[in-house]
Amino acid sequence: MAVDMNILMVFLLTLFSLVLCLGYGLYNWNRDGAIDPERAEEEAAWSREEKKIEGELSGEGDL
């Protein structure tokens, strides 16, 4: 045999790991999609603040 057991085992384990990742990823592809409430609120606050600043800046430009 050209390859010994140690190498054969690591080839198989590598393939097993790949299959594990594929299986896990596919099974959970759309799970846990909800954005955390804290994060959502933080992003929303930033967005409001950004729009406010943009509005103020464009107002200054008009002057």
């Binding site: 590598t14 790991s17 790949l18 594990l20 990742c21 594929l22 896990y24 990823g25 596919l26 959970n28 592809w29 759309n30 799970r31 846990d32 999609g33 909800a34 954005i35 955390d36 994060r39």
Partner: peptide, 19 residues
């Protein structure tokens, strides 16, 4: 990462990429 979903997908994607 924005949510756990990206983590799940990264497992699949990362596994393929490394392989």
């Amino acid at each position: 990462v924005k949510s756990g979903r990206e983590m799940n997908r990264a497992v699949l994607i990362g596994g393929i990429f490394i392989f």
